[in-house]
């Protein structure tokens, strides 16, 4: 799949933002007043900024409101509803915490649950697609949820919890890569089933339908060099999970080390998300003879 910057920014940063809202809603840390204002400003900048970035990959963003109509069948529509509900409920909670010095516990819990559901609905936009076997596995929502929760804990300054959650998220990340690497083969879709012709070894794409490129090739047939993918996975693991955990468990880690951990985590997160898209093999590539399986 084409790793479009708008979609990478959207899923990475809105995931972080809603992860932070989850912890703030649950009262970790139990902030009020100006400290709360700073926390909520960061959370809303990430969540709303991410959602706005997603609008940049639309062909006709002026009709975006129509995306609220099909929540019965479409995960994308459900995400639209859940994200707006989460942001509105948490806005009430945040307003009371910042300006009235009160934390409405139940409202916070509802906001936290909605934030979590928003990230789940984002993950299901990808997880539902049978056409991309690497994404079409139960670990896809687990992967995006653990990353979001761990990143939220990190931003919320929950040092010990964040270290544990990052370790868990790293394990899920590795498992997602492992299962994903064999997913296209395991799906049973190959050039023989795609065309109904021959057997996997006996059929070969001879001539493409067009001499130039097209939307399908640009959008779905992004091929990453195997060597680079291994290197990038190591970078994602080190920066996204390893280094932040080390920085967090240093005794008496203050704001400076905390900030370093956040910067490292974001760099690793973006790398991981780039790979999430770039490595995903859409089955339409089979018709062009671009998939080895």
């Amino acid at each position: 799949m084409h790793p479009a910057p708008s979609v990478i920014i959207f899923t990475s940063f809105s995931g972080l933002g809603f992860g932070l809202l989850l912890f703030l809603g649950l009262g970790f840390p139990p902030v009020t007043g100006w400290v709360a204002f700073v926390f909520y400003a960061i959370a809303y900048a990430l969540a709303v900024g991410g959602l706005l970035a997603s609008a940049f990959h639309l062909g006709n963003p002026q009709r975006a409101l129509k995306a609220f109509t099909q929540w019965k069948t479409s995960w994308l529509s459900r995400e639209a509803w859940l994200s707006v509900m989460a942001l509105l409920v948490m806005a009430v909670y945040a307003f009371c915490a910042v300006f009235l010095d009160t934390r409405l516990t139940v409202i916070g819990w509802i906001g936290a649950a909605l934030s979590l559901l928003t990230v789940y609905s984002t993950s299901m936009i990808y997880g539902q697609l049978k056409t991309v076997p690497r994404w079409n596995q139960p670990l896809t929502p687990v992967h995006l949820l653990t990353l979001s929760i761990a990143g939220g804990a990190l931003l919320a300054g929950q040092m010990t919890v964040a270290a544990a959650l990052l370790a868990l998220a790293a394990a899920v990340q590795v498992a997602h890569w492992q299962v994903g690497d064999g997913a296209l083969k395991a799906s049973g879709t190959n050039l023989a089933t795609a065309t109904g012709l021959g057997t996997p070894g006996s059929i070969r794409a001879f001539e493409p339908p067009h001499t130039g490129t097209n939307y399908l090739l640009k959008e779905f047939v992004h091929v990453v060099g195997r060597k680079h993918s291994r290197k990038l996975r190591m970078i994602a693991l080190t920066l996204g999970y390893g280094l932040p955990v080390v920085l967090l468990i240093i005794p008496g880690a203050g704001h400076v080390l905390g900030l370093l951990a956040v910067i490292s985590h974001v760099a690793g997160l973006v790398t991981s998300r780039w790979l999430f898209f770039a490595e995903a093999e859409h089955v339409v590539g089979l018709y062009y003879g671009k998939r080895s399986a």
Binding site: M1, H57, L58, G59, N60, P61, R63, A64, K66, A67, S74, L76, I125, Q128, L129, K130, T131, V132, T189, A194, N214, Y215, L216, E219, F220, H282, V283, V284, Y287
Partner: peptide, 21 residues
């Protein structure tokens, strides 16, 4: 009513849908 999000093309295994540039 199409916002051009491209998700339907992602969901189609046959490459039958193309987003007009």
């Amino acid at each position: 009513a199409c916002i051009g999000c491209g998700l339907c093309a992602w969901a189609c295994p046959y490459g039958a849908r193309e987003l007009d540039a």
